[in-house]
Simulated scan of single mutants.
Amino acid sequence: MRLVNLDRITEARRLLEGVVRGTPMEHARDLEQVHGGAVHLKCENLQRTGSFKIRGAYTRIHGLSEAERGRGVVAASAGNHAQGVALAASLLGIKATVFMPARVPLPKLAATRGYGADVTLHGDVFDETLAEAIAFAEHTGAVFIHPFDHEDVIAGQGTVGLELLEQVPEVATVLVPTGGGGLVSGVAAAVRALRPDVRVVAVQAEGAAAFPPSLAAGKPGRLADPHTMADGIAVGQPGELTFAHVTDLVDDVVTVSEESLSRAVLLCLERRKLVVEPAGAAAVAALLEHPGAFRPPIVGVLSGGNVDPLLLLQIIQHGMTAGGRYLSLRLRVPDRPGSLAAVLSRISELGANVLDIEHRRISGALELGEVEVALNLETRGPDHCAGVTAELRRAGFTVL
């Protein structure tokens, strides 16, 4: 199978001039301590449509013949690919139809329609949405725009690799969020052609990591039940073309937990002032979960920033919990006036903030004359959590 070469990617870059933004590179000094050198973040979350997808979508659609353009294009997506196809088709004056799952977040639905696509909601799971889009293509003659498994798509995504090599020419390791593999295939093709010494690492969510078992089997395989908050990389099966690229050009595939993804989103928001979706933050999650595993200077690609506000709220809370910023405690205290006040006074002295509290007198585990107090506290991190717990024990409270 022929892989995408540097000429194709360079051609795509010329095509994309004036269409996509050259996205900035953010210096992440707070991540450097555990990795022993410079860490940079390539901000594709600041790209048009909020992700890298416009690069591949425009390259693919621009390459259609006049007859194909006249039939229009169709895509299936839960978000980023939909928006990339919608904008690309609009810029090229081509009719676009996009199928999205019935429960797609409203901001993604509104954005896709805002870029000019006709949107049809279909299916409770993405496979149903995809099947309907393919059926539409067969029935109408519209050209199906695959989200990752096409040479033009890979070439367009590879322009990210050209940019990052120019922005950080001394880079030693590149970390790329990976679902179906279009982005990492393109980046690896560009990097391997120009800097074969640079290590390219694909990052997948643990619950949707299709590449490790596929690589072990020597062919693309399907996950039975991919599940992760990072819906942008929740792809159950690699493509034939992207599998070939990853097999030949990518040095390693690592996985990250849901907790690390949450912490990564929170870190980008707090320290970098960047809104990044869970899939887009996978490279940062790898830096958090695998300290010292990557040779610096490191570039991590932030692949997208399209996150539903309600999900972002949940992720922030999840990330604060994973980062030790919340502490849940159960205490046994004497059932007499002033006991609860003493607990709260001590917690205040220790600098923790009470989020909620529950006072229970009825429990089979309680001794006569005892009550149980359940507390959720906001803290300053793992060390503060440990300190609060230890100090409460030293104060004579029974911490369960």
Rank of each mutant, 00 (worst) to 15 (best):
A117N: 11
V119S: 03
G141I: 09
G116Y: 14
D118R: 14
D124M: 08
L109E: 11
V98C: 12
E132W: 00
M100A: 11
P107F: 12
P107E: 11
F136P: 01
V143L: 07
V125N: 00
G123R: 00
V119K: 03
H122F: 02
K95M: 10
L92P: 07
I94V: 15
A110I: 15
G141H: 09
L106Q: 14
P147G: 12
H146Y: 07
H146T: 12
A131T: 04
T112V: 05
K108E: 13
T97Q: 09
A133L: 06
V104C: 07
F144Q: 03
D124G: 15
F136D: 02
T140E: 05
H122L: 00
Y115Q: 13
T120E: 05
H122I: 00
L121S: 06
D118T: 15
L92W: 09
A117L: 08
A117Q: 07
V119M: 05
E132K: 06
D127T: 05
G141P: 13
P105F: 14
F136T: 01
F126A: 04
G141M: 13
K108T: 13
L121F: 08
D149P: 14
F148Q: 05
D124C: 04
F99L: 08
H122N: 01
R103H: 10
V119I: 11
E138D: 13
A135F: 02
I94A: 08
I134D: 00
P101C: 08
H122E: 00
P107M: 10
F99R: 03
A137P: 01
T120A: 05
V125K: 01
A96F: 05
E128Q: 15
R103Q: 08
T140L: 04
F126D: 02
R113E: 15
L91A: 04
G114N: 06
V104G: 03
T120Y: 03
T140Q: 06
V125E: 05
T97K: 11
F136Y: 15
A142E: 09
G114K: 07
A102R: 14
A96I: 09
V98H: 10
A142Q: 12
H139E: 15
F136M: 01
A102W: 02
M100F: 09
Y115N: 14
A142N: 10
A142K: 10
E138F: 05
F148T: 06
L109K: 11
L92H: 11
V98I: 15
I94Y: 04
F144G: 04
V98E: 05
P107L: 11
V125S: 01
H122Y: 06
G93W: 12
A142L: 13
F126Y: 14
F148M: 07
G116R: 13
L109D: 09
F126K: 03
M100C: 09
A142G: 12
H146K: 09
T112F: 01
G123K: 00
G141S: 11
G114F: 06
F136N: 01
K95E: 15
K95S: 14
A110S: 14
H139T: 13
V119Y: 03
A102K: 14
L92I: 12
A131H: 03
K95A: 15
T97N: 04
I134C: 00
M100I: 07
T129S: 02
L130R: 08
V104M: 04
A142Y: 09
V104W: 02
F144H: 07
Y115F: 15
D118L: 12
H139P: 00
T97C: 08
E132H: 08
D149Y: 14
L106S: 07
P147V: 08
